[in-house]
Write a protein that binds this DNA or RNA. Structure first.
Length: 124
RNA sequence: AAUGCAAGCCGCCUUAUCGCUCUGCCGCUCUUCACCGGGCACAGGGAGGAAAGUCCGGGCAACAUAGGGCAGCGUACUUCCUAACGGGAAGGUAGUCACGCCUCAAGGCACGGCUAACAGAAAGUGCCACAGAAAACAAACUACCAAUCCGCCAACGGCGGAUGGAAAAGGUGAAAAGGUGAGGUAAGAGCUCACCGCCCUGGUAGCGAUAUCAGGGGCAUGGUAAACCUUACGCGUUGAAAGGUCAAAUAGGUUACGUCCACGAAAGUGGUUAGCGGCUCGUUAACAAAAAAGGCGUAACGGGUAGACUGAUUGAGUCAGGUCAGUGAUGGCUUGACCAGAUAAAUGAUAAGGGUUGUCCGCCUUGGCGGACAAAACAGAACCCGGCUUAUAAGCUUGCAUUUUUA
RNA sequence: UGUCCGAUGGUGUAACUGGCAACACGCCUGAUUUUGAUUCAGGAAAGUCCAGGUUCGAGCCCUGGUCGGACAA
């Protein structure tokens, strides 16, 4: 598998799994994301699974929502090798700021969430 | 020429790197006896004029449906276009604006632009606040008036009141019961006449809306139908979360086999029917019979949940050219080009360059060249089409308004 | 994706068949009280989400838009 790919198996799309993540998972806030995460209940799963969400209440237009989701997805895709692969995680990123941030800034903050996730996992 | 407003057209391009998705299939690879399937590589495709709002219409699908009526909802000048429409085209009528002509003026005529939810108020019901005498089978407050009666006085007259006449004047109101002028009268009145308007009948032109001409009627008919309603026409209901196919695990159903158990001397049997409920089943009651009303295991079958696939992307197709018919919308024939298909939802990210426009600087030759900086909107397919509505930067086209300059 | 509602002083609600936008709480001022609460008297505060239309007249009727909400796996 290529280094910078983003296939369907890396996406979180099953409704039951998403329900489980939001009910059982832990969370923290790191500007501009609210991050939910949970260890994957299927231990043999080959990759992390992530979900990106932008609220319809904050951004009325579908164009703006798509733009932010695309930028976050690119940031994850290009930087995911920095995320330590100790346990396979389910992660949900919820964009919760009213401004549309530029790509460079989103990249920087997303990498910080990786470090935070690593720290929290070690602590356990 | 500049600025503003309105309507229409248009809706930036190229390259590199890293990705997403669909299709194709030569090659490589994983799995496999093989097919199938997965991965990599390669090639090609991948948002809009509104994809939006979800306001109309249709396709498609399931269910319903003898025929007709009522109810409900919608539409509403005429003819046509269309698969259909509340959409479009052409025409008519009314209103309004501008210009021209006739005219002293009022007004009329002709042409053009814009606007119109533009059927019916002389079928019925309701409503019309306040003001005003009166708001709909008209009506007498002020003012007006011949006559008759009564009272008073300075008495062939005058004043006041009553009976009555009148719908012209005043004032109110959004709206006051045909308008203007003349006659007429006690005063007045379509009471009579002329012109205009209105209504009725008939002729002519037109498919028709309607136009026009002739005759008749003194005039009856206030507004509101985006109040109820009437008339004509149309509409079965529900929407892709429709519908269809495949189908794990668990529980349960049916059948077969095995085993234990119950009943019976044995053979054998281990139900049937009905009701109720939250209905892949459960439960209650009754019945038949000599009697008893069951557990476990395995296999197969059927139903169907999660889920997956399909529906689902080429069709009343779109665009361009030619040609024919038509005033036109549009239609026929023909040639060519084009055709997204995601599904927690792809069509991107980063970098560089170019074009366009604006500002500033420099150079020369009116105008161009070079450099720097800045700007580029509205907005993202969700089963598919046809419309409508709304949002839109810069540029272009047209119209209107204002300002300046020149003649 | 589709269907259906609503928007009125700071807040919660009224306004019948179109005819002066009403009520309660809250707010402000004054009185009562040593002071505060209560009570009493008085006052301010929306022109009805926005734009257009119908009508003499629109919160109400009609059309388009904005925002908010509900329902259907």
């Amino acid at each position: 598998m290529g280094k910078f790919t983003f296939k369907k198996e890396e996406r979180l799309y099953k409704e039951k799994v998403i329900q489980e993540l939001f009910e059982k998972g832990s969370s923290f806030y790191l500007y501009p994301f609210k991050v939910f995460f949970l260890q994957n209940p299927e231990p043999a799963y080959p990759a992390h699974q992530i979900l990106i969400s932008v609220s319809k209440k904050i951004f009325k237009n579908a164009v703006d929502r798509n733009l932010i989701k695309r930028r976050i997805r690119e940031a994850y895709r290009l930087n995911k090798s920095m995320l330590v692969e100790r346990n396979k995680l389910l992660i949900a990123y919820i964009y919760s700021v009213k401004e549309i941030l530029p790509s460079a800034q989103i990249h920087e903050r997303l990498v910080k969430t990786f470090k935070r996730l690593d720290y929290v996992e070690k602590k356990k």
